[in-house]
């Protein structure tokens, strides 16, 4: 394949990933690495570098299209970014040591977990309990708009959420993903932030987390122009279009379709990882 044909096909695939990722709210980053390695036989390091770059583009570029006034908890986001950036730098250090086959298996497991989470429904919980002492000290409690007006919420289990965010940072660097699913889990399930607050705050944090490891990978030669540009431009164009037509599309079926794709890629990644380790 020539560079031109490679760029064309990769851009097309990335466009689809960005579009489906934006429409389903799962983000396209998670399918970029499997697509590059399984379909285009790109080395895992180059795939991770290109994917991280596209994660920054969608998180920062499409974010404004999703701006829901008053949802993002900026203080919680900044505080938890300490955990995700330290995690991302730790993950970037680990990336040089962990064998490629183990990374492929880990990727497969994260894909399976993402598919499982995407099929669950999210009920917005309102916690009346007293906030965690750290939440008081850090002034993390806030309000969010509902149909009935501003609703206040109390933040729970800050250390647990912080620890999960550290793990999300490691995974983001190791696998070249945004780890939005884990970030939402940390805020929604562990810290009991409302679901919409969790998703918007997660998106706010994803670009910063990815930038920490992308900076390191740039110096290590993971980011090569001919692989990174079709991925970045393709995913960004797909995500921007997805944000535009969101609402007109039937997201239920798209979500099922995307979950199906994720499961197939998970099995392929596990097979590849286990196969190359044997």
């Amino acid at each position: 394949m020539t560079i031109l044909a490679f760029a064309g096909w990769v851009a097309l695939g990335s466009f689809g990933a960005g579009l489906l990722g934006a429409l389903t709210g799962l983000g396209g980053g998670i399918v970029v690495v499997p697509m590059l390695t399984l379909l285009f036989h790109v080395d895992l390091h180059y795939a991770i570098g290109a994917s991280l770059v596209s994660v920054i583009a969608t998180s920062s570029g499409a974010a404004a299209a999703y701006v829901r006034e008053g949802y993002t908890n900026v203080r919680a986001g900044i505080f938890l970014e300490v955990a995700t950036t330290v995690g991302a730098l730790a993950g970037a250090a680990l990336a040089g040591i962990i064998p490629t086959s183990a990374l492929a298996v880990l990727f497969g497991l994260v894909l399976l977990y993402t598919a499982y989470r995407s099929l669950q429904s999210h009920a917005d919980h309102i916690v009346i309990a007293a906030p965690h002492p750290w939440a008081v000290r850090l002034r993390l409690d806030s309000t969010f708009p509902t149909a009935a007006g501003l609703q206040s919420y109390a933040v729970q289990n800050v250390p647990g959420g912080f620890a999960l965010m550290f793990a999300a940072g490691i995974l983001s660097a190791l696998l070249g993903i945004g780890s939005g699913v884990l970030k939402v889990l940390a805020m929604d399930r562990t810290m009991k932030l409302p679901f919409k607050v969790s998703t918007t705050t997660s998106n706010f944090m994803i670009g910063v987390t990815a930038a920490a490891s992308a900076g390191v990978y740039l110096h290590r030669g993971y980011i090569v122009p001919a692989v990174a540009f079709p991925v970045m431009l393709g995913v960004l164009a797909g995500a921007l279009l997805g944000a535009r037509i969101l609402g007109a599309a039937n997201t239920r079926w798209l979500r099922l379709l995307f979950t199906g794709v994720v499961v197939v890629l998970a099995i392929e990644m596990l097979y590849k990882g286990v196969g190359s380790a044997l």
Binding site: M1, T2, I3, L4, A5, F6, A7, F40, H41, V42, D43, Y46, I56, A57, S60, G61, A63, A64, G207, V224, P225, A226, V227, F229, P230, M232, L233, L236
Partner: peptide
């Protein structure tokens, strides 16, 4: 932030067009 991303994308796109014009016919091996 969005303006920053679009500016970055414009620079990447300009470089990509030039890169493809110069060495688009070379074999892709990654």
């Amino acid at each position: 932030l969005q303006a920053g991303v679009l500016a970055a994308a414009a620079v990447v796109l300009a470089g990509a067009v030039a890169l493809l014009a110069r060495s688009g016919g070379a074999p892709a091996d990654f």
